[in-house]
Amino acid sequence: MGIVIGVLLAVGAVAVIAWPFFRRRSDVAKDDIAGGPGARPQGSQAELQRSRAEIFRLIRQLEADHGSGLVNEGDFRSQFDDLRREAARLMMEEAALSPMSDPAAELEREIAAARAGLTGRPVETGRKDA
């Protein structure tokens, strides 16, 4: 009984492990990238965007620290400026990487941007020196 289960287990294990060798290479590669639930977009551009999001998070935390008085005005200004510059630098790197943009899509985006400007979300930021 035990031996039967053991053999089944072994056969199953080998089957699962060997499966990728019996598939087309492209399918395997697709699987490889979509390997995890956290599989966020790959590539250095996405990486740069994530880094920028992190910087934005730091800016929000800095603003909170400034609000509570943990960081004084002068330090807040200088640290805020450093972070802002870092974000801009990341954005510049990202832009340098992006492929030549398609004019039609560019137009679409510009329209969308204009529309967003019209509906006008309320401006809200903790920054004092806007």
Binding site: Q49, M91, M92, E94, A95, A96, S98, M100
Partner: peptide, 10 residues
């Protein structure tokens, strides 16, 4: 975050 404005450089 918004993607960087590609057209700026290219």
């Amino acid at each position: 975050v918004r993607p960087a404005p590609a057209s700026a450089i290219r």
